[in-house]
């Protein structure tokens, strides 16, 4: 059996806070196939952020195996993890985390200049529909536009996996939908694997695969043969 693109196998993550052990993730198993639009959904404290952290190479699991495109992420050292984040992951933050002192295009370039096969910043910017606002500073952009920049920054690295943390969390409804649309389109048109972490179960409609996380486990992994268009989603 060919290996899945992303594979979580019995992944545990235990935080030790003083004398208290917090099991954020406990025996997490799921797989994601290449080119899928994945939504990881769950309520607050279910462990989805931990999954995101581990999948994004920001944190290592206490036990278990995480594999991305054949690489065992879970056994990587800090240096390898940095390289992993750098080349394989494109991260979109809830609060965009743009560098305020760089223009939109520069923020994109900031990411692209550190990876091996970056996409041209201008192309990515036009891809996210911001070719007109390339030279604006983040403060001159609306939240949606900032998030687009953030997505562009993630895409420009030409990552294997686009990982989004509540990408609409700081946005209004309409804008949120547009961002979702952008992400979905990106997945569809470029065949890039996109994973969205959210507490909003409405997003599940548009996903190819839905991983429902609850109490530190992947409670269900369902695939959606006919996902809805992002613009049609209502919440």
């Amino acid at each position: 059996m060919p290996m899945a693109f992303v594979e979580f196998k019995d992944v545990c993550k235990v935080y030790r806070m003083g004398d208290v052990e917090v099991r954020a993730v406990y025996g997490m198993d799921f797989t994601i196939e290449r080119g899928e639009f994945v939504v990881i959904v769950g309520p607050s404290g279910a462990g989805k952020t931990t999954v995101l952290n581990m999948l994004g190479g920001m944190d290592a699991p206490t036990s278990g195996t995480i594999v991305l495109d054949g690489k065992e992420v879970s056994s990587m050292g800090e240096r390898e993890l940095t390289q992993y984040r750098r080349h394989d992951i494109g991260f979109v933050f809830q609060f965009y985390n743009l560098v305020q002192n760089l223009t939109a295009v520069e923020n994109v370039e900031l990411a692209s200049q550190i990876c091996m096969n970056p996409l041209p910043a201008e192309d990515v910017m036009s891809m996210v529909g911001l070719s007109e606002r390339m030279n604006n500073f983040p403060s001159q952009l609306s939240g949606g536009e900032q998030q687009r920049v953030a997505i562009a920054r993630a895409l420009a690295k030409n990552p294997k996996l686009l990982l989004c943390d509540e990408p609409t969390g700081a946005l209004d409804y309409v804008t949120g939908k547009q961002i979702l649309k952008l992400l979905q389109d990106t997945c569809r048109t470029t065949g890039r694997t996109v994973a969205i972490v959210t507490h909003n179960s409405a997003f599940t409609q548009i996903a190819d695969r839905v991983i429902e996380v609850r109490e530190g486990k992947a409670r269900s992994v369902t695939t959606n043969d006919h996902p809805a268009d992002a613009m049609t989603v209502e919440w």
């Binding site: 390289q83 750098r86 985390n97 560098v99 920054r153």
Partner: peptide
């Protein structure tokens, strides 16, 4: 701190 964290997430090496 936030900016630094973001950079780290973006895959900046320690030296960078």
């Amino acid at each position: 701190v936030r900016e630094i964290a973001s950079l780290k997430v973006l895959g900046f090496t320690r030296g960078e």
